[in-house]
Design a protein around this nucleic acid. Structure first.
Lengths: 243, 243
DNA sequence: CGTCGGGTTGATAACTTTCAAATTTCGTGG
DNA sequence: CCACGAAATTTGAAAGTTATCAACCCGACG
């Protein structure tokens, strides 16, 4: 499946209809790929390197650590996502990028990016769209942590992840499998793993969703959407293709 | 001052040394400007328009509203900042952009942007840098709300604002003036205005900072930096010019 | 004047963390 | 197939933080 419809093409395809030339450009990136083991840092906070990556396979998380030792997970990245795009232009990386599972990526240099921009402008537009979408997700994440209570933001986060996974063929309306521990989820949602545990229990007991054994099951999708005030608009993947 | 060193040039200059040609391109944008009154929405959540703006003068805030009626302020925008850059490519805007004071902006269309990208690549790189920096700020904001307590994140936020204002010549190490109400600050920091009030009092009484009559005064800069675990790295504006 | 939007304060309730400890899950080697 | 240890999950009780509700103060402004 990945040779014909890699997740990246699926995702970008939700925004621009890709031509054969553009698809083959993507394919070229696909060819020079590397893999990393779980737990490995692709990029470290404060590091000078300037690499970006395209994620083909596996799960990744990006996070920042505070002096106090606590960490905030910015985002979980799934196949089809870019990694480190934002900070290619920075002197030093402001965040960590860590493989959660065994992953497959291709390295993209600053020059590759600039080259893509001048050679295949439509693809460049699609990349910018993807970057904008990433930022929109961070913004919605900010809204969640700032203004939704724990059950609401848990519901919202798991719904969003579901929508993203569905777009690249890794989930359905029923649910999806994901390798997150309660602890990681807590670090993403700005709470304690203990509280996370209680919130998940509450959501389960109230018939909203079940998070167990690396599986998320939406027991009451509509109820969840209402509870979380979930509106997919910011993902910009609802309508048909543009352009 | 603004004709020779507009805030935007000051800001971008922290990243790339701008050539006369690039400066004149900026000047061109400067020429076709508009102004808006306080309280006016430049962009509304769900709106279809696709405009971006450069902010020359005045304060702006961007925010999202929830069904529940509460709002989360994403960021305050100051002279030299772009507005709506992220969502030019989106079908609909995912957030509101509101003038807090009387402001001066220039409209930038999607085509202007694409044009800039092909004609003045260095300027384009600078614009991308600015966009990355904006995202880095949102990320740090997320970290603050997720993992810092109320006094810490208040300190962090006001320090960040200070650093940004200093870059465009609107603040010093001593402090700066800003038109924020406690209520807006609370909406930005994910708390109640009542709690905001108490936190500000605490910071004042403990000799950290004074926020009064639209003036922020750093009474103990070093102490604040420690309290907030403030590291300017993510603003990427510390070192000398690059390139 | 009287109103209105900040700002301020107190009391109480709700939510979340912290600390401490059990219980379960899971991979590994015997 | 079982034992073992490490990691993840679960639970309880107490402490801490923040929100909610209800006033009151005050200066700007028509």
């Amino acid at each position: 499946m990945h040779s014909l419809f890699p997740p990246l093409a699926l995702k970008l395809g939700a925004f621009v209809a890709l031509s054969p030339i553009e698809l083959s450009t993507l394919q070229k990136f696909h060819d020079r790929r590397r893999s990393f083991e779980p737990g490995v840092d692709l990029v470290r906070q404060g590091q000078f390197g300037k690499m970006a990556y395209i994620l083909w396979e596996g799960w990744v998380c990006t996070y920042k650590k505070l002096q106090s030792g606590s960490r905030q997970i910015i985002d979980f990245r799934i196949p089809g996502d870019f990694l480190g795009l934002r900070s290619v232009l920075f002197r030093t990386s402001d965040h960590n990028i860590e493989a959660m599972t065994k992953i497959e990526v291709s390295e993209v240099s600053e020059n590759d990016l600039i080259g893509t921009f001048s050679k295949t402008p439509r693809l460049a537009t699609a990349v910018l769209w993807a970057a904008s979408r990433d930022e929109a997700m961070v913004v919605e994440h900010l809204v969640s942590i700032g203004r939704r209570n724990a059950p609401e933001r848990t519901a919202h986060f798991l719904l969003e992840l579901g929508a993203r996974l569905k777009l690249v063929g890794m989930g359905t309306k029923k649910g999806y499998s994901c390798p997150l521990s309660q602890n990681m989820l807590a670090d993403a949602l700005g709470m304690t793993s203990i509280h996370m545990n209680r919130v998940l229990r509450q959501l389960r007991e109230e018939g909203f969703l079940t998070f167990r054994n690396g599986e998320v099951i939406f027991d009451n999708f509509k109820g969840l959407v209402t509870l979380a005030d979930f509106d997919t608009g910011y993902l910009d993947q609802d309508g048909p293709l543009l352009r």
